[in-house]
Design a binder for these strands. Structure first.
Length: 492
RNA sequence: CGGGAUGUAGCGUAGCCCGGUUAUCGCGCCUGGUUUGGGACCAGGAGGUCGCAAGUUCGAAUCUUGCCAUCCCGACCA
């Protein structure tokens, strides 16, 4: 079986490091479960972030920034939320170190510098944001309040997984306040749509939009919407969530507004987020045995040009020709790199840029220039052909779009090939072991059954699809009546 | 935090059971040269608290104990 189909994101990273390829996506830092995002990986994140940010603004949102530290008393305010995150909070208890009197050159926490009230490092920012909103909202004229923040958060998980579950991670979290339930629900669904569009159209990863069951719901939410993606090893990955928070936070933080009739009511809330986990999704959805495959729309580099030459004079000739091509590509807004470094030979460069997933590679040498062509290689299909230099830039522009489509179609075909229906328990168990992927099956709707299935098989209900058709059937475990299928899978 | 495994150069490793000169090999790195159309070749070179600490011993990478870290499996999870 190929590496791509057996590996998780962290294996890929390890694999690149094993081969000592420069520019691998991440390294572990000294802190357990944290990651250093190297420039190439960060460039990818920036492209993702810029696109998302644009989409948030198009839907009327603004960015703001709230503090990293959350006083414990604020954190406690919304009980369910606090309870849900309590087990994984990093907590600041002191504000100073002093020299260790018993151990020269070492430092200890100064016992005299104990904080009156502990500070929780945000695992999510509802508490501090809603405490702030309290001062911002008095009237229906202040609503809706549509704010997003780009930030880092810390969740001290028992077990970490590179990209998918690091102790500290980068994300965006939107927090909105509305006058009515309907408007808040609309917002929740709108933002889920934004995520689905982004992940499908830009990351080329097909997703299923759905809602979580009660037991998988975000702590403090009334309803959790999600997008679920399928990785190449047949495991599901929750790629983004959008929560309808009801009036829970407004009540916990006492955020009320006067409506047009001067009636006082609590505001309705949503929150939604995606994180650097999406990078993991990208890696696991598209990579193959030659390395990463970057969808052109968010690829840090869309085109790399590798010159082939003999001696300094030969190099000068190719450099000059390449210059005109690069200018044309840049004029069309294409992210291009010309790698004429003398450190590595062409074959080495080919392999390296394949590992990095650069969608299009152009190789050119004297032979090509004489024929007014270049050799053009696609990362997604590994096809190579000679293309005329005339009109090359627009050809490449079209090709990038074609690659984007092809990568998405391939991932979609994979998902369809690995989505099965199970009609009874035996089929369900057999599918899980033999054809891992999404399983569409009937469930009686109870938390007990869901729990039992999880215990028996490790499969969880990923979501109840939003576009679900009603269909009479029997629960695969209990045989009780069911009126719709839900999506099961083993998940990350 | 429970069960299992592993720690030897930047990375991957041999050696450990059965203690004994200067710790093995490959990749990478440095210098010089020849090369350059799919991860080049030759020659020379640098790089090690053998995870940490204590113990046993004339002698410890190797045996013992403790600690630390990492990985896998659970519980937890964007």
């Amino acid at each position: 079986m190929s590496k791509a189909l057996t590996s998780r994101a962290e294996d890929y990273s390890q694999w690149y490091n094993d081969l000592v390829i420069k520019g691998s996506l991440a390294d572990y830092s000294a802190v357990r479960g944290c990651m250093v995002i190297k420039p190439y990986g960060y460039a990818l994140w920036e492209n993702m972030r810029d696109q998302l940010d644009k989409m948030f603004k198009e839907t009327g949102h603004e960015n703001a920034y709230f503090p990293l530290f959350v006083p414990k008393s604020l954190f406690e305010a919304e009980e369910k939320n606090a309870e849900g995150f309590a087990k994984e909070c990093a907590v600041v208890t002191h504000y100073r170190l002093v020299a260790d009197p018993e151990n020269k050159g070492k430092l200890i926490v100064d016992p005299k510098a104990k904080l009156e009230e502990e500070l929780v490092i945000r695992p999510t920012s509802e508490a501090i944001i809603w405490n702030t909103y309290k001062g911002w909202i008095q009237s229906y004229r202040d609503l809706p309040l549509l704010i997003n923040q780009w930030a880092n958060v810390v969740r001290w998980e028992m077990r970490t997984r590179l990209f998918l579950r690091t102790t500290e991670f980068l994300w965006q979290e939107g927090h909105t306040a509305h006058a009515t339930r309907e408007e808040a629900v609309d917002e929740t669904e709108t933002m889920l749509g934004v995520y689905a569009t982004f992940v499908e159209d830009y990351m080329a990863v097909p997703v299923i939009k759905g809602i979580k069951t009660a037991s998988e719901r975000f702590a403090g939410a009334e309803e959790t919407y999600c997008i679920e993606a399928l990785m190449q090893d047949g495991k599901a990955l929750q790629a983004g969530t959008s929560h309808f928070l009801g009036q829970n936070f407004a009540k916990a933080f006492d955020v009320k507004f006067s409506d047009k009739n001067n009636q006082l009511d609590y505001v309705w809330a949503t929150s939604w987020g995606v994180s650097t986990r999406l990078i993991g999704a990208l890696i696991m959805a598209h990579s193959d045995d030659q390395g990463l495959v970057m969808p052109p729309r968010i690829a840090p580099l869309q085109v790399v040009i590798v010159p082939i030459y003999k001696g300094d004079e030969g190099k000068a000739v190719v450099d000059a020709k390449a210059k005109t091509i690069i200018d044309e590509l840049k004029a069309l807004g294409i992210r291009v790199k010309y790698d004429n470094s003398d450190n590595a030979r062409p074959g080495w460069k080919f392999a390296e840029y394949e590992l990095k997933g650069v969608p299009v590679r152009i190789a050119m040498g004297q032979r090509d220039i004489d024929n007014n062509v270049v050799e053009l290689a696609r990362r997604d299909t590994k096809e190579k052909k000679s293309i005329s230099i005339d009109g090359l830039a627009s050809y490449v522009k079209d090709l990038l779009e074609e690659i984007q489509q092809n990568i998405f179609n391939r991932a979609l075909a994979f998902r369809e090939d690995n989505t099965h229906k199970a009609e009874n328990w035996d089929e369900f168990v057999k599918l899980l072991d033999e054809k891992p992927g999404f399983i569409s099956a009937h469930w009686d709707g109870t938390a007990e059954t869901e729990e039992k299935i999880k215990d028996l098989t490790k499969a969880t209900i990923r979501c109840i699809p939003l576009d679900n058709k009603k269909e009479d059937g029997k629960c695969i475990l209990t045989g009780n009546k069911s009126d719709q299928r839900v999506i099961f899978a083993r998940a990350y």
